[in-house]
């Protein structure tokens, strides 16, 4: 319940849109229409992975903005996967049952902007392409810049080209095409906003270029979604529930809490929304804060931790749960 409203769904279609990206089409099992959503929204999929429950967040595609009969997501097989994306690629086929959360948007378009510059790298195209679809439908001015390693890995490139024509600019690094943010940012009229989603290094690069060009912070938007990484195992005690357990190497703190049967709060499972902030009662070791929510000061004080992406390097963590 802590993740909010859940919709039971079934996989009704899958498609390999690149060697590493799989598109899933998910339809409600109970006949209830799925709600419409805004571009940039994600959903948390809950999948029975046999020995464990997999809960991963994925951006909702622009193809199903109106909701209704189905939602679509695109899942990249992650090399550092703790098993979630690999399980989806290897085992989740047509007919499989799972559930998804109501859409949550932490990467929304600023509707007061007069013009929108969308920049995507790799699988970061999923929320960015949804933004392009929404802006297109609203007849608002935008340009879409999409960088990829090679044409085979560029999911959706052909589809986007057909749909957005001259508004789309592709950069294929295999063909020595480089996305030059400085050129894109020059001569943009007042009221232009910039959105970027892609590898962390790309986001940092784009943001730095924009700041160097004098763009104000409020005009800059990035999807700071983190795939939680594993780490060394450590002991976990939940003081209020009186439960002791272990957070495994390939498990997040939040997953260990859920596996212990405790209903802990969460929304994005990506270190962005702040919903899973939990009070730390004691930490025998060093807190590894990986979220984008707490300030540096809060992180160093260590009074709270975001259970979805952060963990402990040390012996035991005691939480107020």
């Amino acid at each position: 319940m802590s993740g909010g409203v859940q919709f039971p769904v079934r996989v009704i279609e899958t498609e390999a849109i690149s060697p590493t990206v799989k598109r899933l089409r998910l339809a409600p099992r109970d006949g209830q229409a799925l709600p419409a959503y805004s571009a940039g929204s994600h959903t948390v999929l809950t999948i029975d992975g046999g020995s464990r429950l997999i809960r991963n967040a994925y951006s909702l595609l622009g193809s199903t903005l109106a909701g209704g009969a189905a939602y679509e997501v695109a899942v990249q097989r992650s090399p550092q996967s703790r098993g979630g994306s690999a399980f989806i690629h290897d085992h989740l086929t047509v007919g499989a049952d799972l559930s998804l959360s109501a859409p949550i948007n932490l990467f929304a378009l600023n509707r007061t902007a007069r013009r929108h510059i969308l920049v995507a790298g790799g699988i970061g195209i999923t929320p960015i392409a949804a933004m392009a679809a929404e802006l297109d439908a609203l007849a608002l001015p935008f340009e879409l810049h999409y960088a990829m390693r090679d044409t085979a890995s560029g999911a959706f490139a052909a589809e986007l080209a057909a749909r957005h024509g001259d508004n789309l600019h592709l950069y294929v690094s295999e063909r020595q095409e480089r996305l030059s943010v400085r050129d894109i940012l020059a001569r943009q009229p007042l009221g232009t906003h910039l959105y970027v989603c892609g590898p962390e290094r790309m986001i940092e690069g784009v943001m730095t270029d924009a700041r160097m060009a004098g763009w104000p912070e409020s005009a800059l938007h990035a999807e700071r979604f983190l795939a939680p990484e594993g780490g060394e195992p450590f002991a976990l005690r939940l003081a209020r529930s009186g439960i002791s357990t272990v957070v495994g190497e390939h498990e997040t703190l939040l997953e260990a809490i859920e596996a212990a049967g405790v209903d802990a709060p969460y929304l994005c499972r990506g270190g962005a929304c702040g919903q899973c902030e939990t009070r730390v009662l004691a930490a025998d070791g060093h807190l590894l804060h990986a979220d984008h929510y707490l300030t540096d000061g809060q992180k160093s004080r260590g009074e709270t931790i975001m259970t979805c992406v952060s963990r402990l390097r040390g012996r035991e963590l005691v939480l107020d749960l």
Partner: peptide
């Protein structure tokens, strides 16, 4: 002035 100004203007 603002009607033709570009981003990066303060």
């Amino acid at each position: 002035l603002l009607s033709t100004a570009t981003m990066g203007t303060r």
